[in-house]
């Protein structure tokens, strides 16, 4: 078959996955279409809820900027990122130095 890949440990069939996805999507859409009996159009149920505050008109005021995304992850990993960013100095001689050191270490180990 065109879509089946045997990995040696199992297989992957894209068309089976697509069929399963279509069935699951149809089921989810059907459930969603049932809706809530207490919903009334044109009432305050249609209003956007923004933590109880007035929704700003300018989109930029609502958006979470990329720099704030995953702040918890970055805060938890701060020591790791400190080391990693300090490695990336962006200085040309550091880049060449790193290359020379890595090749030299490989040369030492390969001859041992």
């Amino acid at each position: 078959m065109l879509g089946t890949v045997y990995t040696g440990f199992g297989y992957w069939d894209v068309w089976s996955w697509a069929a399963f996805f279509a069935i699951a999507a149809a089921l989810v859409l059907w459930l969603r279409a049932q809706g809530r009996e207490d919903y009334k159009e044109g009432t305050d149920q249609d209003e956007i809820y923004w933590s109880g505050n007035v929704v700003p008109e300018e989109g930029a005021d609502i958006t979470v900027p990329a720099s704030s995304a995953y702040w918890g992850f970055r805060k938890a990993m701060a020591p790791f990122y400190k080391v990693l960013t300090e490695m990336h100095t962006g200085i040309g001689t550091d880049i060449v130095g790193c290359y020379v050191v890595v090749v030299a270490l490989m040369a030492v180990f390969v001859l041992m």
């Binding site: 078959m1 065109l2 879509g3 089946t4 890949v5 992957w12 894209v14």
Partner: peptide, 8 residues
């Protein structure tokens, strides 16, 4: 994506 086996 659709024809991985053919591509491989």
């Amino acid at each position: 994506t659709l024809f991985p086996s053919w591509t491989i």
